[in-house]
C-alpha cells in the first residue's frame, strides 16, 4: 500500500506543481524587466495573502514531490538500503519544507 500511496502522492503533487511552476517562470520574466531589486520584490509580496498562499502551496508540493523522486533515484542507483533511502528522502523533505516556508514568511511577512 505504501508504494501505491507514494506513487499517487508524487503524481498529484506534480499536478499541483505544473501550473505553479509556469506562473513562477512567467513571474521571473516579469520581475526582471526593470532589473531585479529587493524593494520591488518585497513591494509585491509583503502583506499579500495571495502570494503567501501561492508560494506556500508551491513549497509544500515541492517538499512532497522532490523527495519521492530522490528516494527512487537513491534506491535504483546507490547501494543504500530501502530504509536508508527513505530516511534520507524524509530528511530532504524536511529541509525543503523548512527552508521554503521560512523564505515565504520572509518575503510575505
Amino acid at each position: 500500500m505504501m508504494e501505491r500511496r507514494f506513487f499517487l502522492l508524487q503524481r498529484l503533487s506534480a499536478l499541483v506543481l505544473a501550473p505553479l511552476v509556469l506562473v513562477h517562470l512567467i513571474l521571473i520574466l516579469y520581475a526582471v524587466r526593470n532589473g531585479l531589486t529587493a524593494d520591488e520584490i518585497l513591494g509585491r509580496t509583503q502583506g499579500s495573502l495571495a502570494w503567501a498562499l501561492f508560494y506556500g502551496l508551491f513549497v509544500v508540493a515541492a517538499a512532497v514531490h522532490a523527495p519521492l523522486g530522490l528516494r527512487n533515484i537513491l534506491r535504483e542507483w546507490t547501494a543504500l538500503g530501502d530504509r536508508a533511502a527513505a530516511g534520507l528522502a524524509a530528511a530532504f523533505a524536511l529541509v525543503l519544507l523548512l527552508l521554503g516556508l521560512r523564505a515565504v514568511v520572509a518575503v510575505v511577512g
Binding site: M1, R4, F7
Partner: peptide
Amino acid sequence: LDRAFADGGCA
C-alpha cells in the same frame, strides 16, 4: 491490483 502495486511492482 494491490500486488501489482507492491514494492517492485508497476510503480
